[in-house]
């Protein structure tokens, strides 16, 4: 097991290298000369003279080949320096760190909500298969898979902020600000978890060891929860991990709608202002989180099912 996990951990830097190389190349193909943009920022309203731009390009090392620039960027990134924002001139690392708590709060609340809603509802739907309860759960799961977070966000604002005045429409602050963005962001994942835990539990309930557990005279609740659910949990853990990545992606849209000062909004603002170093940094940061979460999922997976032999699995 440790062997597998160690090898798995080793692939993380390789994947990060790949992701950063792709985004770096892309951003360097993008139109707009960073030297020109920076000079305009430093002297607002002044058309930078051609020679100044060229000199500044040399100073920034922008005329070096792509490979040189990438290794320089990588070296700095490894030292914890992700460069300077074109827009504010401030170091990106600290700007990112400033916005991180808001995003983690939103993503964490959404993940918790999705797990607490989706998994119990899925279990109930499976245990009472064919009942009105099951039908309700199916409807909810379909709705969650169908209504995108941006439509749900607007509907929530319309209902609870504009019409009922119960919650603030936008902004960042107490728990009242958190409710709507968290619900909007969690709906899709909750629906997915509900479908999966239902299907997975139903599949498990037909296994031989379930019959054995019942034959031993265990109470039905113990049979379902201890023997059934623990085994049904495996695919649910995987989807939760993958869902975490999608939460971070979805947070980009939800944060923009609710004016939530997180990393997602930072990225969207940067995209519109062509603040490429920031875009590059955010993509890298998301990749790190995503890969680490995936790694964590693998560890949990292994702990849940010691039978698994990862040696034969590619990754």
């Amino acid at each position: 097991m440790h062997n597998y996990l160690a090898r798995r951990l080793l692939t993380v830097p390789l994947l990060l290298l790949g992701i950063s190389l792709i985004t770096f190349t892309l951003l360097n193909l993008a139109p707009g000369d960073p030297a020109d943009i920076l000079l305009r920022l430093q002297n607002p309203g002044v058309e930078p003279p051609r020679e100044a731009v060229l000199a500044f390009r040399r100073e920034l090392g922008l005329d070096d080949p792509l490979w040189t620039r990438y290794s320089r960027w990588l070296g700095q990134a490894l030292m914890g320096d992700l460069g300077v924002s074109y827009r504010t001139g401030g170091p990106i690392v600290s700007e990112l760190a400033q916005r991180l708590p808001a995003t983690l709060l939103l993503a964490g609340a959404s993940l918790g909500l999705a797990v607490l809603l989706g998994i119990p509802l899925g279990i109930l739907a499976a245990v009472f298969k064919g009942s009105p309860m099951d039908g309700m759960a199916r409807l909810l799961a379909l709705a969650g898979a169908t209504v995108p977070s941006y439509v749900l966000s607007l509907l929530l604002i319309l209902a609870f902020a504009v019409t009922l005045h119960w919650l603030p429409a936008i902004g960042y602050g107490g728990i009242r600000h958190l409710v709507m963005p968290a619900v909007a962001l969690s709906a899709g994942l909750a629906a997915q978890l509900m479908r999966l835990s239902r299907a997975s539990l139903l599949e498990t309930l037909t296994q031989d060891y379930m019959r054995t557990a019942r034959a031993k005279g265990l109470r039905e609740r113990t049979v379902v929860l201890r023997h059934g659910f623990k085994n049904a949990l495996l695919p649910v853990v995987t989807i939760t991990g993958i869902g975490m990545g999608h939460l971070l992606g979805g947070a980009v849209i939800v944060e923009t709608i609710f004016g939530w000062p997180g990393v997602g909004k930072y990225a969207v603002d940067a995209i519109f202002l062509r603040d490429y170093p920031v875009v590059q940094a955010v993509v890298l940061y998301l990749a790190v989180i995503f890969l680490l979460v995936n790694f964590g999922v693998d560890v949990v997976y292994r702990w849940l099912d010691p039978r698994l032999d990862f040696a034969g699995r590619a990754g």
């Binding site: 999608h246 992606g249 979805g250 980009v252 990225a267 940067a270 875009v279 993509v283 998301l286």
Partner: peptide
Amino acid sequence: ADLLLAFPALVLALAIAGTLG
């Protein structure tokens, strides 16, 4: 392919679309 699958599609699409304009 694994590299792309290891990453949330929407985020990467966002970065690419943002770059291309």
